[in-house]
């Protein structure tokens, strides 16, 4: 079982220091655990990291997260990493390629895994939280997150590419000693980095916008928006206080409330008289 983890040059959301994106650290955890489940015959078959970009130092943290070896394809700033990555992955032919659901440092649109899957003609399973060997040899069982702990379990015959969802197990701790022992292999660019489809954008500092209030219609007046914010939909307006009610009555009120907001299923499947 050969596993590659795609790495991107992340930035810490607060401090802006170069860090390994959390999703990729989670991907490494999945990869190392899966690698251990299959047993690692030798160092070359152990999970490895792959990064295409100007600087390998940006992803060196991945060594401390549990990868023994990183491959770095030197690319100029802004070049499309897909052809180079596709060429290298075609050459190494890993059985499983893991990536974060959205890499950082490039276009940050999360398109690279999809472009790679198309270039390598492999199925892509998005937003996985767990990967395990399937019952049949050569198959993998992947759990996709559907949000709120619901899963879609997909069985697929490898090789396959998967992206990792934030609900996957939290990253392992960075170990300085492991990072010290790991190696970074520099590879020259193997394919001409042509420009991928890019949208010309204009950048400016981020401005936080108010979240849309549920139920407030578009183009409504300020009064309507205020009503939506404080009116029917907000918890404040529905604030009900029952002081010393009969426990039975309290129970009825609670159940009615829970059903109204939809967290408890209605009592009967057939319609009320």
């Amino acid at each position: 079982m050969k596993i590659a983890v795609l790495l991107s040059a992340g930035r810490h959301p607060v401090s802006s220091t170069a860090v390994l994106p959390r999703l990729e650290a989670q991907a490494i955890r999945i990869a190392t655990r899966l690698g251990a489940a299959f047993g690692v015959p030798d160092e070359a078959a152990a999970p490895f990291g792959l990064h295409a970009g100007p600087d390998a130092a940006a992803v060196a943290d991945a060594l401390g997260q549990g990868l023994g070896r990183l491959e770095h394809i030197a690319l100029s700033e802004g070049a499309d990493p897909v052809p180079a990555l596709a060429a290298r992955l075609a050459a190494t032919a890993p059985d499983l390629i893991l990536a974060g659901r959205r890499g950082q440092g490039g276009g940050e649109s999360g398109i690279v895994p999809y472009a790679l899957a198309a270039a390598l003609d492999r199925p892509l399973i998005a937003d996985v939280v767990a990967v395990a060997p399937g019952d049949e040899a050569g198959t993998l069982r992947l759990d996709q997150s559907l949000g709120r702990g619901a899963l879609r379990r997909v069985v697929v015959r490898g090789p396959v590419l998967a992206t990792v969802h934030p609900d996957a197990p939290a990253p392992l701790a960075y170990a300085f000693g492991r990072a010290r022992r790991g190696t970074i292999v520099s590879l020259g660019p193997t394919a001409d980095p042509g420009a991928g489809p890019v949208i010309p954008v204009e950048e400016r500092p981020y401005r936080r916008r108010p979240k849309v209030v549920k139920g407030a219609p578009a183009g409504g007046s300020a009064a309507e928006r205020l009503k939506a914010a404080t009116g029917e939909s907000g918890a404040a307006s529905r604030g009900r206080l029952l002081v010393d009610p009969d426990p039975e009555e309290a129970a009825r009120e609670i159940l009615a409330y829970l059903r109204r907001i939809g967290v408890v299923a209605p009592p009967a499947s057939h319609p009320h008289p």
Binding site: R238, G239, R240, L241, D244
Partner: peptide, 8 residues
């Protein structure tokens, strides 16, 4: 609370 019940 949106629904508050003062009761044991």
């Amino acid at each position: 609370a949106g629904l508050a019940i003062v009761q044991d």
